[in-house]
Simulated assay, not measured.
Amino acid sequence: MAHLQAAPDRNHRTARAAAVITGLCVLILLAFIISMNTGVIRLAPVDVARTLFGGGTDQQKLILFDFRLPRIVISLLVGAGFAVSGAILQGVSRNALADPGLLGINAGAGLAVVLYISFFPVKEEAPVFFMPLLALLGAGTAAALVYLLAYKKEQGISSTRLILIGIAVAAGMGALMLVLTIRLDPKNYQFVAVWLAGSIWGTSWKYVTAVLPWMLVLLPLVFYKARVLDVLHLGEQVAAGLGVAIERERRRLLAAAVVLAGVCVAVGGGIGFVGLIGPHLARLLVGPKHRYLLPASALTGALMLLVADTLGRWILQPTEVPTGIVVAVIGAPYFLYLLSRSKA
């Protein structure tokens, strides 16, 4: 009888998740269309459609294909990467407040990039593909430091200790970044200041090709590990009883979260809260099962960042508000709300 009742419930959850994911895809498509029409130089929807299908003037082709479309694609990739990274961290730590920013991963990636910018010119060709590797190195260093400090042989990983140590490491690395920016020349300082605020600064297809391969490899791999995340979320004793190699799987998932966040920081700067809010909104929509939660988180994060970037380009035209500031205006109150509800 219980089995017969479980089947309709499972089918209902699957149908609801499919409807939510379809709805998110439709919203992303609408945001995509609006973003293509948003900017200092306005393009009417008819002009956008004509240009996409091979028509349009040279100026319209330049604006759409060389500036707006790469930026839109990067916003989608970075938003999805941050949100999936946050979903992994929340699942592994079993803490609703975990995200790459709070655990120091973003700060570590940012510190590595700032170190590079402090000694080499910003406009060189090499950093386009080199910066994700630098950010990955910094993010991995920060994550390893937080993990080692939070791990206790007798108790394992305490989610509260993980968050507190992550905040301390992020604060220390953030302070070091500020010290490094003091010695920068005005040109590099302006770039770093905007980048640290969270700006989608890579507006060419080179930056898309620097990020896309990482996403194509890591996102399917993480989706494949959805069942492992479900088991880990039940607790270490239950996971061990079900035959899961806890530490090995935890390290693999944390490594995937670190790589996703590090690569996203390399081209998106210090954008916070997407990794926190995206998984929470997805969880409200599709429930806690990671089979549905991870793809929904990716779509939610992509939608959030695309909308935030579009608003940042529209609010104070002809100037731009960094995307990270727009996200923070939305995310900070929500974080305080989550903190007030936390039992930690």
Rank of each mutant, 00 (worst) to 15 (best):
A144V: 13
Y147Q: 14
L148F: 14
L149W: 07
A150V: 13
E154A: 12
E154S: 15
Q155L: 06
Q155C: 07
I157R: 10
S158C: 06
S159V: 06
S159G: 05
S159R: 03
S159T: 10
L162P: 06
I163H: 04
L164I: 00
I165A: 10
I165T: 06
I165H: 05
G166A: 09
A168D: 05
A171T: 09
G172D: 02
G172H: 05
M173E: 15
M173P: 13
M173D: 10
M173K: 13
M173R: 11
A175F: 02
L178D: 13
L178W: 04
L178P: 04
V179T: 14
I182A: 00
L184E: 00
L184R: 01
P186D: 05
P186T: 02
K187L: 01
N188S: 15
N188K: 07
Y189H: 02
Y189P: 00
F191L: 00
L196H: 01
L196V: 02
A197E: 04
G198P: 02
I200Y: 14
W201C: 01
G202K: 04
T203S: 15
S204C: 01
W205A: 11
W205H: 14
Y207G: 03
T209N: 13
T209Y: 15
A210C: 11
A210N: 13
L212T: 14
L212C: 12
W214Y: 06
W214V: 09
W214D: 10
M215N: 11
L216G: 08
L218W: 10
L219R: 01
P220Y: 04
P220H: 03
V222R: 07
Y224Q: 13
Y224F: 12
K225C: 15
R227C: 11
R227S: 07
V228Q: 14
V231I: 15
L232E: 14
H233Y: 12
H233S: 15
G235Q: 07
Q237S: 15
V238L: 08
G241A: 05
G243Q: 04
A245R: 13
E247W: 02
R248F: 08
R248V: 12
E249L: 05
R250F: 04
R251I: 15
